[in-house]
Amino acid sequence: MKTTITVNGQARSLDLDPRTTLLDALREHLRLTGAKKGCDHGQCGACTVLVNGVRINACLSLAVMHDGDEVLSIEGVGAPGSLHPVQQAFLSQDAFQCGYCTPGQICSTLGLLAEIAAGHPSQETPSDAPPVLSDAEIRERMSGNICRCSAYPQIVAAIRQAAEALA
């Protein structure tokens, strides 16, 4: 099926098997292998990308469902010589070890910051009060991204650093 997806600001036209997931379209067709396949079932978050500014699991979405959508993957966030503040914070705080979950963590962080700014609720503050970027909020809102190396404390520190840098 003909599908056009804007990926990292570039319109990409693809002719895809309807079975191709957004994740496999990025990895196998567009050679954007930053989004990772950790479980392929929405259970780890390694494939997290932003679609129209919202973080989702790219493994649990068909590419053909995204015709006309804007996708931001880690490759569109920053490059080795020009790191985004979130990427720089992950590097500075050692918020990763093996690095496999890292692109998903970073994309998820971008989603988290937008969701906090939009005042979305979480398990941590489900009330009407606007959420604040506390450690507890970060932990709850980043729980959709598993890190088996368990860089969790460093990830919290990185998100705090990034939030300050972006403020």
């Binding site: 929405g42 973080r55 988290l112 979480s122 398990q123 489900p126 729980s143």
Partner: peptide, 21 residues
């Protein structure tokens, strides 16, 4: 959130932010 807080609470207790999005 104002009138049906149980619903909001239940939703954010499920899945992950990515899945709920």
């Amino acid at each position: 959130r104002g009138r049906y807080p149980v619903l909001s609470q239940a939703i954010v207790a499920g899945g992950s932010p990515q899945l709920r999005n």
